[in-house]
């Protein structure tokens, strides 16, 4: 029983890592080389099926779908990394601060998290669009803001389990302040929990970016984006159903890979967490 679950967690680590690796590789390669130029339109070659020249066919502007998918990976990763990074830095800072200070500050941070959670994230994103206008920045801010309370809660919860430990007591007796203790002892001890959560949040961010771009309030044309491609594909669904399939598959590969990677990391980094699930 134990043996098989350990085997499963190693498998998720490898499969997840492999899928994520493919997506990252596609994004990196697209910086230097793509099968066709990403914005090259050829109206004479629009809505073609897969062929030796266009591996996955062409879209309604005659752009190469495989090229767009590779470039779209770049967009997803960039938006995801910045948005999750934003939420991570602010959220973790708030969380460990709340755990270190407790009292009214803790209460305030947690209530703010509750309020952010109360509004549906998509609605907040749309509200934000009314303010900032559509664009990748809007998507990044909307997703990032949604990530702040997630990381704040996780960081606070994990930090609270660290503070009562003996080595913290020893550090306090040695005269170290709350800031230094947080930096030197708390953060290194909650890093693995945060890393696992960041992987999962990255997956959610990719889904969110796709949804926002699909709605037309995220990445704007001509910048390539998986969500945007799906929006355009829906219009030509009757003529070229394949166009509506590939970008979705790309999203599934990225998200599935990140989720599996997160599960595998959780089991690998902290067996106690794995058992708690």
């Amino acid at each position: 029983m134990m043996g098989s679950s350990r085997g499963a967690s190693t498998a998720s680590l490898w499969v997840g890592g492999g899928l994520v690796g493919v997506v990252i590789a596609a994004a990196l390669v697209s910086l230097a080389w793509t099968p066709h130029p990403p914005t090259a339109m050829a109206l004479s070659e629009r809505l073609q099926g897969p062929s030796a020249v266009h591996w996955l066919g062409t879209d309604h502007f005659g752009r190469d779908v495989a090229t767009l998918l590779m470039a779209g990976a770049r967009t997803s990763i960039v938006v995801g990394v910045i948005a999750v990074g934003l939420g991570f830095v602010i959220g973790v800072a708030l969380g460990v601060l709340a755990a270190a200070r407790r009292g009214w500050l803790d209460e305030l941070v947690m209530r703010l998290c509750d309020i952010t959670f109360a509004l549906p994230a998509v609605l907040s994103a749309i509200l934000l669009t009314a303010w900032l206008g559509p664009g990748p920045a809007t998507a990044i801010v909307a997703i990032g803001v949604f990530n702040i309370p997630v990381f704040a809660r996780i960081a606070r919860g994990a930090a609270l389990t660290i503070w009562p430990r003996e080595f913290i007591l020893a550090a306090r007796v040695a005269g170290k302040g709350a800031f230094r203790i947080t930096l030197e002892h708390v953060l290194p001890n909650i890093a693995s929990v945060l890393l696992v959560q960041a992987t999962i949040q990255f997956a959610i961010a990719i889904l969110a970016e796709a949804a926002l771009s699909y709605l037309g309030i995220g990445t704007q044309p001509p910048a390539p984006s998986w969500g945007r491609m799906l929006n355009e594909a829906q219009t030509f669904m009757y003529l070229a159903p394949g166009l509506a399939v590939y970008p979705g598959l790309a999203i599934v590969i990225a998200v599935l890979g990140l989720n599996l990677l997160g599960d595998g990391l959780r089991d690998a980094l902290d067996p106690r967490l794995a058992r708690g699930r």
């Binding site: 997956a203 796709a210 799906l230 829906q234 509506a244 399939v245 979705g248 999203i251 599934v252 998200v255």
Partner: peptide, 14 residues
């Protein structure tokens, strides 16, 4: 969990 709802919707429509 990895499938975007709106893409699944498009597949259903297809």
């Amino acid at each position: 969990i990895a499938v975007p709802g709106f893409w699944f919707a498009i597949l259903l429509i297809l």
